[in-house]
Structures are given as structure tokens and as C-alpha cells.
Amino acid sequence: MEKYLSNSSKRASSLKVLLLHGRLDIWIYEARNLPDMDALSKNFVGMFRTKVSTRIADKMDGFMHSQNSTTDAYVSVSVSNAVVARTSVIPDNENPVWNQHSRVPIAHHAAEVQFLVKDSDVIGSELIGTVSIPVEQFYSGVKLEGSFPILDPKNKPCRDGATLKLSIQYIPIVRLASYSLGIAGLENRGIPGTYFPLRKGGKVTLYQDAHVPDDCLPALLRLEGDAHSQHGKCWRDIFEAIMRARRFIYITGWSVYHMVRLVREQGFYSDTLGDLLKKRSQEGVRVLLLVWDDFTSRTILGFPK
């Protein structure tokens, strides 16, 4: 275990960018002496009382904050501007305790891992301060643990004595047995930490593009044995699978655009994807969609969570 060495001059210069390929084991324990982020709005309501009736000001105060309210803190973990982990929100507490553990599969080039301490508001959130850990300080695999000062955007303490207690350890992929044995390793359990168990009998079809016109690609490639590659047409195959479905249609993807027309060739234009799915649903086919909607990747009115 090593101690974190804070060095403002080093942070001002460029840090070494390293490839993190494996897993991060992150513990976020607690924060101490956070500033009261609700004080500003309390002062605003106090000044507002002099301009409007007490009844209106009381309603505003009750909506925005209770008399005993203070910081509603949580921590998000960012690597190369991607949020990879997040704690729960501890309401009305300037000394929150989380004791939360995250195992994060990672494949990022990064110079540091940032722990962003935030105050959760009715709309969005407000940054309290950041703890930045240079990757080169834990790249060897040593467990880095301690209480670190929480710094504001000007690299100054957000409040005297404000600290975040955490630990972080990097485990490269070559040391992860579950990956070195493949997804069928470790008693056929598949990839650890996923929602669904490993199943047999599945089929995956690979495509060059969403749509490939005839004769635009090289001749078929010979694969292992007597098999040959096939230049399939992804969107047409999806269209035909939807039309042939008798019991269910399951669709999962990064983005599902309901207005797309899957077939647009030789004078034939299919209905939009949304209309196709509604039609099949009305015919008794079960239609389910799972699209990307991860909580840490969303914003509310432009405010990051």
C-alpha cells in the first residue's frame, strides 16, 4: 500500500498517459468537512423575504430546502471524461459515509482517475471539488489508499479540512484469470458481473455494414473447413426477421431510431421500424426493446448527474 503524493507543480505539467486495460477495484469510504452547498440558496431566500410576502418566501424555502438541509453528497468516478462508477446520494450530511465498492472493467488511455464530489440538487448537480489520482502512482498494481484533499477548480481546498477517503487498485488483464480462460472459463460461468448467465446454442451474424449493395465487396472468403463468408444485408435481414416472427421480437442496441426504413431498394420502401413493430405487436407478437439508458451517462436539462 502506498500513500498518495500531492504535488501541485507536477499536476500543472503534463502527466504520463498510460493504458489501463483490466479492472479497477475502487472503494469510496467517506468524506469529511464538506462545505454547506445549500447555504447560497438559503441566503437567496433570506434576501427574497425582504422583497415579497413571508408566505411566498416560506413556500420557496420549503420547496428548495428544509431549515436543517445541507449538502446532499455523492461521488462519481471519471476516467478520460467517461463516468465509470458512482456512489449513492447521502442527503443533508457534510460528513457522508458510503463504504461502496466498485469493480470496473476498463480499457482506457488515461493520465489520472478523477473522483468528483458533487451536491445533488432538484435539477442536476453542483461540483463541490475533485480528487485526482495520477495513473502512474497505482499502475504497478499497488493498492493506493488514504484521505485526500478535495480541491476546487482553482486547485485550492474547497473547504479547510475537506477530504475524501478512498482506495484504488489496478489489476491488468493478464492477471485476471476469468479473462485469460475466455468467456467459457471458470466452470463455464461466462463474463463475471453480467446480468445474464452464459448460455449455449446462441448465434451471432457479423455484417460489413448496415446495407451492402450487390457486387460492391470482394469475393466470398473461405473460412475454416468448407465454410465461406456471406455478404449479408443487415437491415434487410432485420426486416425479414421482424416479418417472420411468430412469438416475440427482442431488440437491444446503443440507439434504436424508430423512423428508419430498413428496406429502401429496387423501388420498395418498407414501413418505418416503429410502424413495423407496432403492427407486429397488434398482431399478437411480443415486442421488447432494450436501449442504452445508463444513469451515469444521462443529463437533466444539460446538468450532468
Rank of each mutant, 00 (worst) to 15 (best):
S53V: 02
S53I: 00
S53M: 04
T54Y: 05
T54A: 12
T54F: 01
R55A: 08
R55G: 00
I56V: 14
A57F: 00
A57D: 04
A57L: 08
D58M: 03
D58N: 12
D58C: 02
D58S: 07
K59C: 06
K59E: 13
M60G: 01
D61I: 05
D61P: 00
D61T: 05
F63P: 02
F63W: 13
F63R: 14
M64P: 05
H65P: 00
S66P: 07
S66Y: 08
S66W: 06
Q67A: 06
Q67C: 01
N68T: 10
N68K: 05
S69P: 02
T70G: 03
T70L: 02
D72L: 06
A73Q: 06
A73Y: 00
A73M: 04
A73R: 04
Y74G: 00
Y74S: 03
V75D: 08
V75K: 03
S76Y: 10
S76L: 09
S78F: 03
S78Y: 09
V79M: 10
V79K: 06
N81H: 11
N81G: 07
N81R: 14
A82Q: 14
A82T: 15
A82L: 08
A82M: 14
V83G: 07
V83W: 05
V83R: 13
V84L: 11
V84Y: 11
A85M: 10
R86S: 11
T87V: 11
T87N: 11
S88F: 07
V89H: 03
V89L: 06
V89T: 14
I90V: 15
I90G: 02
P91A: 04
D92W: 05
N93Y: 04
P96M: 04
P96W: 05
V97Q: 14
W98C: 07
W98V: 11
N99K: 12
N99A: 07
Q100N: 06
Q100T: 09
Q100W: 02
H101N: 12
H101Q: 14
H101D: 09
S102A: 01
R103E: 11
V104N: 01
V104D: 06
V104H: 03
V104L: 06
P105W: 06
P105M: 04
P105T: 10
I106A: 01
